[in-house]
Design a protein around this nucleic acid. Sequence first.
DNA 1: GCTTGACTTAAACCTGTGTTCAAGTCCTAA
DNA 2: TTAGGACTTGAACACAGGTTTAAGTCAAGC
Lengths: 168, 168
Amino acid sequence: MYSIGDVAKMMNISTSALRFYDRQGLLPFVERNQAGRRTFKPNDLNFIEVIDCLKKSGVPVKNIASFIQLCMAGDGTLKERYDYLDHQEAVLTDKIQAMQAQLDFLRYKKWYYKTAVEAGTEAVHFLPQTHAVDPETKAQYQRARQNATDLHQLIDLPNQSTSQDQPD
Amino acid sequence: MYSIGDVAKMMNISTSALRFYDRQGLLPFVERNQAGRRTFKPNDLNFIEVIDCLKKSGVPVKNIASFIQLCMAGDGTLKERYDYLDHQEAVLTDKIQAMQAQLDFLRYKKWYYKTAVEAGTEAVHFLPQTHAVDPETKAQYQRARQNATDLHQLIDLPNQSTSQDQPD
DNA sequence: GCTTGACTTAAACCTGTGTTCAAGTCCTAA
DNA sequence: TTAGGACTTGAACACAGGTTTAAGTCAAGC
């Protein structure tokens, strides 16, 4: 049996977050001792692992609560629980693909600035006499990328490792 | 020149979100006409594309504003802008890897419920006489996965396509 | 000239996801 | 037996990221 503090440390979730999840109906399986304190069973960690996974996948708490409700309802909901996870799998793979698309764009912009840094001015990308980026710029990158054997050679600036810390 | 409504449609961002971004300092480059209305230049869409990419990558608005500030400051900040994007690239690849780890876990749970559905009861995964999951269960899945030639055969239940709509 | 639709602002509002606070309970160890 | 630390609750607070509302401006078409 674990206390809320034990679980917080083990799962790397704050106690206030765990209490919040409990209030939102995510932890109906957690029992209490005589003093009213939560006592987590080893098997409860399996539930919390699922909750944590769904949270990290971007599923809202209310939505997770509905899955936990299915879990509490017994074998009659097994197929529903499977379908829920199957759906979340699809949502997550879509999300990963979307992130990958953002990554591709970020890399184009890295190339854009690498090129500009090397030229000493962003003007290398501008239409003559303007401050507007040449619409051909991206196509130019895509051609360069097709011919490139090494993406990093194309987009990475040699790292002189005077790494300033960068806030996020 | 485009109105805020034009840009909203083209970029698939609500006008209220665009005004919010402007208030937060993300659109300092947008000019106004005599009537005080925002007039977006074609080149402004390049900025909005970057903003949208960073937003979709999970970068907070305040943080994006600092990048836009660099953009407005001229060629002296080119290397800083490159470093910013380089950092965001690293953050995003980490994020994608984390998502992939959640996906792996979701797939284990799909297998768990597929197996349970086929058995008609979740008890196939429990330690005898208990409602606690056998700690060996996950290792059992991982072995099955190593031997599996097709992940989907392992974790997907034959789809009888009575697809209930699933809320997200 | 008047209506309509798209724009403007400031301010209020809303949701999700927690965190913090105040007041109290419980257990342990000195 | 008293001090400390970990727990309990409800309520208030915080913060991001918008959305909505109210009141007004502007240009176009009828």
